[in-house]
Amino acid sequence: MTNPTVAEAWVAAPLKRLMEDARLISGVLLYPSGRAVGQFGFSNAADVMSICALTSAINASARELGRQLDGKPFYEMHHAGAERQVFMARAAAGAQEFLFVGVFDRESSLGVVEIYFSEFQKALEKLLPENQAVQVRPSGDFEGELNRSLDALFGPIGKK
């Protein structure tokens, strides 16, 4: 199992622990805007980009659905496929919100993933840097920021 690659160093240890304890095949930690923070199990930046875009869209839709149903936003999603399962959930560390999406198979179970995800959340809370600004950015180079995080995870495209 390879180590996660991260755009922010402080999430590396908890993400690795989650990956190992919950026996996840792959996973991405991201901001709700879709900006990737860390990943494991992927070798292709384009795959992570798509996953981030889709995960952030699913999260946005689920929150709106929850709101429209006059309830609270939905924070967790689980899809069971024939061979693999997808787990998606929100993790809050202080005022900062993250999304996590992970894939597992028969080597794990939803119950196990939930248990260790709960521990992962607590670890993020504990490790959140004091000077970590909440990721609400002004209208500057938004797309640049999205892409720079991918560069941090995979290395800049075209540069070896």
């Binding site: 709700p32 805007s33 879709g34 952030s56 869209a57 946005a60 839709s61 709106e64 609400v136 950015r137 002004p138 209208s139 938004f142």
Partner: peptide, 12 residues
């Protein structure tokens, strides 16, 4: 319905 980021960039 607007599914957007906190800085009003359309997300979905």
């Amino acid at each position: 319905v607007s599914l957007a980021t906190e800085t009003d960039r359309t997300l979905f």
